[in-house]
């Protein structure tokens, strides 16, 4: 069975006519779309206006007189956006890759060698991690980073985010590995494959799961404010979210610049998500279909 079976439901009816039912579904969904995008739209249009225009009519489109790119200009001259983007990318990509890599290995083993007595304990340990409020461990975490000499580096962030993401990632990946047929792995072992090679054979079958885990891991890491503030506050290591937040503090009343900074800060993840979204959905549906 390929990963796409059961993903795209066949239309129940083949007719392409606009029945009342179809119109209704579209109308309701369009309503939700307006609710979801409206507020975001408000931010974007206002980021293109002058301050008096923002407060004069926050919901009107920029006109010839009120249109202004000053906000963006100030963000690029006073802010540190290029450096912030690259920091966020390094941290997010590294942490996500590490999480996916390590969680996949662990989840595979926890599913595959389940006869070992340790497995329920380890599985439970990871499960508990899903609900840990990691902020509580802030001070001990700083002590570790200081002892390792990696305070105020991106590496410190990568390690904490990986630790934070592993529990949910392992728990999710286990559901995907459970769908890999035992016969496949047994056949490989019959052919003389060692455990590592057997793992590599199972891996392609859970590929959608990798995308799902990557997406859910990515959101909280990119948007986190706390650990960048605590573990990597130095200007050279600032992430986008921290940069935007600092910008908000610095330009308390410069609304065009604020809105421009917010728009720019949100853009990359929206784009990344749009790209990942297809894989993500097929991944999730694969996980649940068994």
């Amino acid at each position: 069975m390929t990963s796409l079976a059961g993903y795209k439901p066949k239309p129940v009816a083949d007719d392409r006519r606009w029945t009342a039912e179809r119109v209704l579904v579209h109308v309701i969904l369009l309503g939700f779309v307006v609710l979801a995008l409206g507020p975001i739209f408000v931010v974007i249009i206002n980021s293109l206006k002058t301050t008096p225009a923002i407060f004069g009519g926050p919901f009107s489109l920029p006109t010839a007189e009120t249109f202004s790119l000053d906000g963006y200009v100030r963000v690029f001259t006073r802010g540190n956006f290029i450096a912030n983007y690259s920091n966020s990318l390094i941290v997010t990509v590294s942490a996500v890759v590490l999480t996916v890599l390590l969680s996949t290995l662990a989840a595979y083993a926890l599913v595959e060698y389940r006869l070992t007595a340790l497995v329920p304990i380890l599985t439970g340990l990871f499960l508990i991690g899903v609900m840990l409020p990691i902020r509580l461990g802030t001070i001990p975490i700083i002590k570790i980073m200081v002892a390792w000499g990696i305070m105020d580096t991106l590496l410190a962030l990568i390690l904490v985010y990986t630790a934070m993401s592993i529990p949910l990632a392992v728990t999710l990946m286990m559901t995907y590995f459970r769908t890999v047929p035992t016969e496949l792995k047994e056949a490989a072992r019959m052919d003389g494959a060692n455990e590592w090679q057997t793992f590599l054979i199972a891996l392609p079958l859970v590929r959608p799961g990798l995308a799902a885990v990557a997406t859910v891991t990515m959101l909280p890491i990119w948007n986190d404010l706390w650990f960048p503030l605590i573990l990597a506050p130095g200007k050279a290591n600032q992430t986008v979210t921290l940069g935007v937040q600092q910008f908000v503090g610095q330009f308390l009343n410069d609304y065009p610049a604020l809105l421009a900074a917010l728009t720019l800060g949100a853009m990359p993840l929206v784009l990344l998500f749009t790209v990942f979204s297809r894989q993500f959905i097929s991944g999730l549906s694969q996980g649940y279909s068994k």
Binding site: A106, P140, L159, I166
Partner: peptide
């Protein structure tokens, strides 16, 4: 297989 994930998780989340 489990050790790398467990090590990072325990060191930077559970222990603190």
């Amino acid at each position: 297989f489990v050790l790398p994930a467990l090590a990072i998780y325990v060191m930077f989340a559970v222990a603190p």
